[in-house]
Design a protein around this nucleic acid. Structure first.
Length: 816
RNA sequence: GCCGAAGUGGCGGAAUUGGCAGACGCACUAGAUUCAGGUUCUAGCGGUGGAAACGCUGUGGGGGUUCGAGUCCCCCCUUCGGCACCA
């Protein structure tokens, strides 16, 4: 073994060993399984520090669970459809396929250099036809079940990406990918009916006990359930009814006007001035400005029988509720603002308790609950009671009904781009929209197309792709040219891993044994940016797959860890800021083990990690110390057994033995229970410090040292596997590699302190410390404390009122 | 505006059930090794007063509960994240 720690000599050797020995290949057996998964990367070209951190976390868990005796599935793959590949094609003339596979090749070598314990035999790439054919199959099944459909609607259009975006993919009016402002455009699009599962997805949130609370809250808010009532307002002098939705039936008496969404069918019927309607419609979906247009018509408020004007307003959403609202300016700030702008009456119908009658005009809307005023027979009721009674009245009089609404919309999956899964339908003049036959799947994305960057998707002019025959009647037909949102690909890849790309196959109604064994994912790790996007889609897909009879699992991810970002100088690493740390450079300079160790040590996984070059050096220094430590007594511990009887060892040896058992206990709990790798590593550093200071005297001491060293290497194995392997072999434990060893166990007896430090307080202030034998009874502790010279002095002249004793820790004397 | 999380040394961060605040690491200081720099080793390291022993003070701010509060309760401030015309 070399004098100095040189990771470049160590790491490739063990990477080769693991690969040759198939060390991390997983197969079903009768052990308890553990499925550990990190979010797969987009093959952008090279990995970044965020990946290193994400995969280091996952790898520690996978390796730890393996050593704990679980049958661990730890796969990796590529989210390999998407726009960057297509943009590269447009810009540099490389085919997206070539670009993508070259990136995958390079990134795979990078991941291998990190020593991650993946079962590469299960690798998937979503751009592989063997993979995306099942996207198409799921789509067809959903089409059959009415869960996929096509409709025209206003959709989010990103002018820069030249494609449509789902609601989840618009972040603060901007495109999630390119950050450009999104506009509304009316288009025919394919949708997946995620709303069919709205209630179940909401209820399922209750099962997500292993998820961060904030992610569950975000999912709930996104689904956005609300209870309310739909009420019909008759248009005066016309045979027309406007149905509105409200969550505040208690304010019905205060409705002084009606607002319609611009795309609402009734808007067109009521407004004579089409040009004016066009103007309002143009502003539909814009957040900055509220504008309205009086239709010239009135509705009858069903409660007050008053005539109230009908407006078309740009801020009323067609997609939510009924596309029409009643406006109650006294009790809704938006309506209040609108009423001020257009000179509409404000009628107070809710008053806070004890409010005097005949209040001055409102300065702002009163949105709280309260007591009803000027509300006919409901006057005097509390809001909550009034809601129920008014709903009852509405239902009994045939004016409307109680309803539940969700903010969640169906998932628009059509993308007007090339590099994605072709949507497997054809358009036939005679038969309309016809799905491709299952036996004809996959619909292959044609390779031979031109990337001009203008005029939309290259598929629009790919004649050989476009032209086909109708699966139903055989006549000439045209293929759908839209491809699927790449979030479809990632919504079930964790299911694909259970089978591997070569064995992917589903038959409706036939449960898949591999899914039964491996699903659900026990531990999922990834960035919080997918809190609603990918995680919601995956929960949806898992239910669809369940309802196809392929699995019994409802929730795909039992435990979720959302790791923080890697930042530098307080900001996210980015090329433009010039603060990027390159993993290749880091591995070259310090090795994979140091890179992994620092990523895990510098912060708990869920928090942001501030990068520190000096900190990396500290991690390297620690590993060098371990390296030196293992050869320090190599002769003396060479033939020694590490099993020791604590009773026969010198006091110093007993100390190290105790520390070792305590460290095993702490590291096991920190990893196993809390996923607190930073404190686990700190504990290993403490043990290393004690080992360094340890001066063995006799053979028994060397046995203790050997035990400490072996335990250290076993516990380091999940964090810094190459170093652990090398040293494990070096001290002659070479029959099995350390990655396949058993995790060490501690002995509670040997971990017990013989002495503890007793803190003595007087009136809550620390006045003395004493070493006392562990396990002394309370009385003895009290006597000891009261007998201490310093304490006698501190309480001199005072009367002892009370003495509080905390077993083995502290005595507090209350005196005055 | 609404919802959520977090505020601890110069920095990253530790602290079962309320029980020694600052583990571990980084930076820094002093000493040893070295021609020197780096490395490595030893020691120190919240603030403040003191030569020292030791004292006082200290976990964003203010109140409270308690023998005892970083931890529990109330109010406030700041930062970060999410949602935001959802009627």
């Amino acid at each position: 073994m070399d004098e100095r720690y040189d990771p470049k000599k160590v790491e490739p050797r063990w990477q080769k060993y693991w690969e040759e020995h198939d060390t991390f290949r997983a197969g079903s057996d009768d052990r308890e399984k553990f499925y550990c998964l990190e979010m797969f990367p987009y093959p952008s070209g090279r990995i970044h520090m965020g990946h290193v951190r994400n995969y280091a976390i996952g790898d520690v868990i996978a390796r730890y669970k393996r050593m704990k005796g679980y049958n661990v599935l730890h796969p990796m793959g590529w989210d390999s459809f998407g726009m960057p590949a297509e943009n590269a094609a447009i810009k540099h003339g490389v085919h997206p396929s070539k670009w993508t596979y070259e990136n995958i090749d390079y990134m795979k070598t990078q991941l291998k250099r990190l020593g991650l314990s993946y079962d590469w035999s299960r690798e998937v790439a979503t751009c592989n036809p063997s993979y995306y054919r099942w996207n198409q199959w799921f789509f067809i099944k959903m089409l059959e079940k009415g869960l996929a459909y096509r409709k025209s609607s206003y959709v989010n259009w990103c002018p820069s990406c030249e494609t449509v975006l789902a609601n989840e993919q618009v972040i603060d009016t901007r495109c999630w990918r390119c950050d450009n402002v999104v506009v509304q455009k009316e288009l025919f699009q394919w949708f997946l009916k995620i709303t069919h599962y709205a209630e179940e997805l909401l209820k399922g949130c209750g099962e997500l006990t292993g998820w961060p609370e904030k992610v569950v809250v975000m999912q709930k808010n996104w689904i956005g359930k609300s209870h309310g009532v739909e009420v019909d307002f008759r248009v005066d002098g016309m045979d027309e009814v406007i149905r509105i939705f409200t969550t505040r039936p208690d304010t019905l008496f205060g409705a002084t006007f009606i607002c319609l969404s611009p795309p609402h069918p009734v808007s067109r019927k009521l407004v004579a001035d089409k040009a004016a309607l066009e103007k309002v419609t143009a502003q539909y979906g814009k957040v900055d400005e509220k504008i309205g247009l009086f239709t010239g018509h009135y509705c009858i408020n069903p409660m007050t029988k008053e005539k109230i004007p009908v407006y078309v307003a740009n801020f009323v959403l067609m997609e939510y509720g009924t596309g029409a609202i009643m406006s109650v300016p006294a009790h809704d700030q938006r309506d209040f603002d609108f009423a001020q702008e257009y000179g509409l009456p404000v009628r107070v119908v809710i008053a806070p308790e004890g409010a005097a009658h005949g209040q001055p005009p409102l300065q702002e809307a009163y949105e709280e609950a309260g007591f009803l005023v000027d509300s006919g027979e409901f006057t005097g009721m509390q809001s909550g009671e009034a809601k129920e009674k008014i709903i009852e009245y509405i239902e009994q009089n045939g004016l409307g009904k109680k309803v539940v609404n969700y903010k969640l919309r169906d998932w628009g999956i059509s993308r007007q781009r090339y590099w994605g899964t072709p949507i497997p339908v054809v358009y036939c003049e005679k038969c309309g929209i016809v799905p491709v036959r299952e036996s004809d799947l996959p619909v292959i994305l044609p390779e031979d197309v031109k990337f001009t960057g203008t005029g939309g998707s290259p598929l629009l002019v790919a004649e050989s792709f476009l032209k086909t025959s109708c699966p139903a009647c055989g006549a000439d037909a045209r293929r759908e040219t839209d491809t699927m949102d790449t979030f479809v690909d990632s919504s079930w890849y964790f299911i694909a891993y259970c089978m591997g790309l070569d064995h992917l196959s589903f038959t409706e109604g036939a449960a898949v044994p591999e899914l039964k064994y491996w699903m659900p994912v026990n531990q999922y790790i990834g960035g919080v940016e997918h809190a609603v996007l990918h995680l919601l889609y995956s929960r949806f897909f898992t239910r669809v797959i369940r309802d196809l009879g392929l699995t019994a699992v409802n929730e795909p991810f039992t435990n979720l860890l959302t790791q923080g970002m890697v930042i530098r100088d307080g900001a996210k690493m980015s090329k433009s800021k010039g603060n990027v740390v390159d993993p290749d450079y880091l591995i070259e300079k310090y090795g994979a083990d140091t890179s992994r160790l620092f990523s895990l040590f510098a912060a708990p996984p869920e928090k942001d990690l501030e990068w520190s070059d000096k900190g990396v050096e500290g991690a390297f220094r620690f590993l060098s110390r371990i390296w030196n430590l293992s050869s320090k007594f190599s002769k003396e511990i060479g033939g020694v057994s590490s099993s020791v009887d604590g009773a026969e060892v010198s006091p110093a040896g007993r100390g190290l033995l105790r520390k070792t058992h305590q460290t095993i206990r702490k590291v096991t709990n920190d990893i196993g229970r809390e996923l607190h790798f930073n404190t686990a590593i700190a504990a290993l550093m403490e043990l290393a410090n004690e080992m360094n200071a340890f001066a063995p005297g006799d053979e028994k001491d060397f046995a203790v040292f050997r035990f400490a060293l072996e335990s250290m290497l076993l516990m380091l194995a999940p964090f810094t596997p190459h170093l652990a392997e090398e040293l494990w072999e070096g001290i002659g434990c070479s029959d099995a590699c350390v990655s396949q060893e058993k995790w060490p166990v501690w002995d509670e007896e040997l971990a017990k302190d013989e002495e503890t430090e007793l803190v003595i307080q007087v009136n809550g202030k620390m006045r003395g410390k004493l070493m006392v034998a562990a396990g002394l009874p309370e009385e003895r502790l009290k006597e000891t404390a009261l007998g201490d010279a310093k304490i006698i002095e501190a309480i001199a002249g005072k009367q002892i009122r009370k003495v509080i004793v905390v077993q083995g820790r502290l005595v507090n004397i209350v005196a005055g």
